[in-house]
Design a protein around this nucleic acid. Structure first.
Lengths: 156, 156
DNA sequence: AGTGAAAACCGGATTCC
DNA sequence: GGAATCCGGTTTTCACT
């Protein structure tokens, strides 16, 4: 519950963002000058505190047969906005929902699909929920990077 | 190089999106009705083909001391747009860059930071690179979900 | 926070289909 | 060529200090 993130925690977060699957506790222990059991306990704490929300493979959707990625900018009434996020995430093809602090277009839904009809069916589902799709933008490329502030001073 | 994604591959991708760190090859083998060595070979192939780009921990930046998340909509000249993406990713605080297929605001940069000055310094760095920051939007919440199409018919 | 033993997991080589 | 089995080394887990 408390957010006492120290340098060891930051190094752990950085390592797990780099390679969550192959980075062993021992590897991280070397970087931090602690022992592997310490690292394991820290990780457990970070997980139960919710700092680490999970571990996920980064997939290239293009190469796996789903070349379309689109951003749908939506408008929702403020009152219902928070409640419908779980429902939006349940729509097939939706990979992320972001709540925006803006006047009108206050929900940004990211959709992945194989063909155009996959996207439009998501848009339809959003309409059925009472949302207005104000804008649609195709994403040509998408790159992600581990958050740099978790890195130690020396290694970046 | 080839994208021969079959049901076994999709099950693997789905499992690794759910929990890339704790899901063992044996676990996935049970789900797919194959052996663990088969799963490991498939994973290696998916990795070297670039379908799996990596494994990353999902961090709650709010809880780890970086409460600010912002979207910066930028304008770049078409010609230089692709080349500068690596440079943008190198800016401290930038966690993702998306190339948008739109007339003007064709780059979407996501920034995470502790305070307002972290964001403005990124914006300044973008300006120094010759980009125009056309719009800035604060993100109140952000949720991600594994891509549903990889799931088998029965388990979702 | 560290130690030690049992269990699980991974990687590679081999064999089978 | 792809999938299954076996084995040596590593990693994780759990109880204890």
């Amino acid at each position: 519950m408390a957010d006492d993130i120290d340098d060891v925690d930051r190094a752990i977060l950085h390592a797990l963002q780099e390679d969550a699957r192959n980075m062993s506790s021992g590897d991280i222990a070397e970087r931090t000058g602690t022992s592997d059991s310490t690292v394991r306990k820290r990780i457990q704490r970070l997980e139960s505190d919710g700092v680490i929300k999970g571990y996920s493979a980064a997939i290239d959707y293009q190469q796996s047969g789903y070349p379309l990625r689109m951003l749908l900018f939506c408008t929702a009434s403020i009152s219902e906005r928070g409640d419908m996020i779980p429902n939006i995430l349940d729509i097939d093809g939706v990979v992320s929902v972001q709540e925006l602090v803006t006047g009108e277009q206050n929900l940004l839904v990211t959709v992945v699909g194989e063909e155009d009809s996959d996207i439009t069916s998501v848009a339809q589902a959003l309409l059925d929920m009472g949302l207005t799709v104000a804008d649609e933008v195709l994403v040509r490329s998408h790159e992600t990077k581990p958050f740099g502030e978790f890195a130690s001073e020396s290694d970046e």
